[in-house]
């Protein structure tokens, strides 16, 4: 899937054994595709932004757990997790606020399209995508906060330097 992940597979220095790493590398793509599917079809099938976001976050958690924290944080740093977290929340709110242009907060102002089409239901798929980003980033951030950070959190140090 990715060159530096391939290099890490037989590196016993960090992460679990190469058996776990091989299986995790194989599963990762499937997990991400499934998560994206759950988010994008959220308005048609069971699931949606939250469930899909959790699945995507589980993909990253699997990566971190099997390959060690260096690889996990290289793919999604805590800084980017925080940025994505805020962006997802803001996107959701902006979609709600855009409803004001058509008259009411959270009004579904886009065309509804045909029922059971992928591009239908107005703003709901967009809301699902925003929630997906938010949940992915915040669940991953909670995971790294609980598991990796010790007493010193990265931006805590930043603040003290200022």
């Amino acid at each position: 899937m990715n060159r530096d992940i391939d290099k890490e597979i037989h590196n016993e220095a960090h992460g679990m054994t190469s058996i776990v790493k091989t299986v995790a590398r194989f599963l990762m793509g499937i997990i991400f595709i499934f998560g994206a599917y759950i988010i994008l079809y959220g308005h048609l099938t069971p699931g949606g932004g939250f469930a899909g976001g959790i699945i995507l976050a589980c993909g990253y958690i699997l990566l971190t757990m099997s390959f060690g924290k260096e690889i996990g944080l290289r793919k999604l740093t805590d800084n980017w997790a925080s940025i994505l977290d805020n962006t997802g929340a803001l996107l959701f709110l902006v979609i709600g606020l855009l409803g004001f242009t058509a008259g009411s907060f959270f009004l579904n102002f886009l065309g509804k399209g045909n029922i059971f089409d992928l591009f239908s239901a107005g703003t709901i798929p967009l809301n699902n995508i925003a929630i997906g980003i938010k949940v992915l980033a915040s669940v991953f951030a909670v995971f790294i906060a609980l598991s990796i950070f010790g007493r010193v959190v990265s931006d805590y140090v930043e603040d003290e330097e200022v």
Binding site: N79, N86, L90
Partner: peptide, 27 residues
């Protein structure tokens, strides 16, 4: 009347925007 939901929407928006902006400048 039309802006009543802003009582929650405005602080929520600023709460999240604040963290994004503070990555560029703390002031």
């Amino acid at each position: 009347q039309g802006y009543y939901p802003l009582f929650t929407a405005l602080p929520l928006a600023m709460a999240f925007l604040n963290l994004l902006v503070s990555k560029l400048s703390k002031k």
